[in-house]
């Protein structure tokens, strides 16, 4: 590849045929170029009188925002788009790893450029450290086809592959309705909400939109005294109760029996996860031997209480156990 000084105003940034990155922050790069200049020239190519970026979108955009008149570039002289795209891919791989969205974009571009699904599976999936199956390719292509505002959330919340995969299971309209509830939550809670909602919908044969339009959810959404995070949490809890009604009743019963027993807040008692084992965990902290003794005395009182057996059974009456 030859090296040329290219005027920035002749680079056609509207032609995005080789572009794989859309969600990034240029601030650090702009500062670096302003201080020490452009160290690593982008790669461009000529197509029908246009100069297109093969690789180095961030660098070009950063230089544009610094109003530089021209920058050094490598020029790819071939006319094969696929060859140019693969060159860009290899060039990027030498100095960084790709994000989830970039991987999805790369795979989508390869298919658009005429590479067969089987060739992508055998070649680029391995290069991108993705399991080499058509099923994985399908999911990445679905992620690439998501709406820009959803992709922006995937990027800003640094969502993982399983969460993004769950988003592809929803319709565009459903995703739009879910945005405000998803945004304030952390990744695990996002995944839980998306999964439970989908499963309730399938189990009860009720469209997601109808569940979200339900009176209970609408009441939370319109509550003026709740923050966006509180609303999202309440919706998540509500959907979880719908998904696991028996387990939720058991948890409620345990909680109310603890209250009935006047169990102190500074001594934690927990059943085994999902009440699966027969063991309970008691946890407390203390600063000195007096405090330790006091808590043991309190525990002894509690264990002698006639209501303790009800707590340790925690079984709502209507269940068989």
């Amino acid at each position: 590849m030859k090296s040329e000084n290219i005027k920035l105003d002749i680079i056609n940034i509207k032609d995005e045929r080789f572009r794989i990155s859309y969600y990034f922050d240029l601030f650090a790069l702009i500062r670096s170029i302003a201080e020490i200049g452009l160290i690593h020239p982008p790669v461009v190519t000529h197509r029908k009188g246009n100069v297109l970026i093969v690789t180095g979108w961030k660098r070009v955009l950063a230089c544009q925002s610094l109003s530089l008149p021209s920058i050094p570039c490598f020029v790819f002289e071939g006319q094969d788009d696929l060859e140019a795209f693969r060159l860009g891919l290899q060039e990027n791989l030498t100095f960084r790893t790709f994000t989830l969205l970039e991987k999805a974009e790369i795979l989508s571009r390869l298919i658009q450029l005429g590479v067969t699904e089987n060739d992508v599976v055998k070649g680029e999936l391995s290069l991108l450290e993705i399991p080499q199956t058509l099923n994985h390719l399908d999911i990445y292509l679905d992620i690439a086809a998501l709406e820009p505002e959803i992709k922006a959330i995937i990027h800003s919340k640094n969502m993982t592959y399983p969460v993004a995969q769950l988003l592809t299971e929803y319709s565009e309209e459903e995703r739009r309705l879910l945005l405000s509830s998803l945004h304030p939550l952390g990744q695990n809670k996002q995944k839980e909400l998306l999964q439970n909602l989908l499963e309730v919908s399938k189990r009860d044969h009720i469209p997601v939109q109808d569940i979200l339009a339900g009176e209970d959810i609408q009441r939370i959404i319109s509550a003026e005294n709740l923050s966006p995070l509180q609303k999202a949490e309440e919706i998540r809890n509500l959907i979880q109760r719908k998904r696991y009604p028996t387990l939720s009743t058991w948890k409620d019963t345990f909680k109310s029996q603890k209250k009935d027993l006047e169990w102190p807040d500074d001594i934690k008692i927990e059943p085994s996860p999902f009440f699966e084992g027969e063991e309970y965990t008691v946890q407390f902290t203390f600063k000195n031997s007096d405090e330790y003794k006091k808590k043991l005395i309190k525990l002894n009182e509690l264990v002698s209480h006639k209501k303790i057996s009800r707590l340790l059974k925690s079984s709502p009456k209507k269940n068989n156990e």
């Binding site: 028996t246 058991w250 996860p273 079984s315 156990e321």
Partner: peptide
């Protein structure tokens, strides 16, 4: 529809019905 009953993670990490 078999996945949509109340399946929890058991002591072995596998999904199984809530014990009751």
């Amino acid at each position: 529809r078999i996945l949509y009953e109340e399946l929890i993670r058991g002591k072995d990490g596998k999904f199984r019905y809530f014990k009751p």
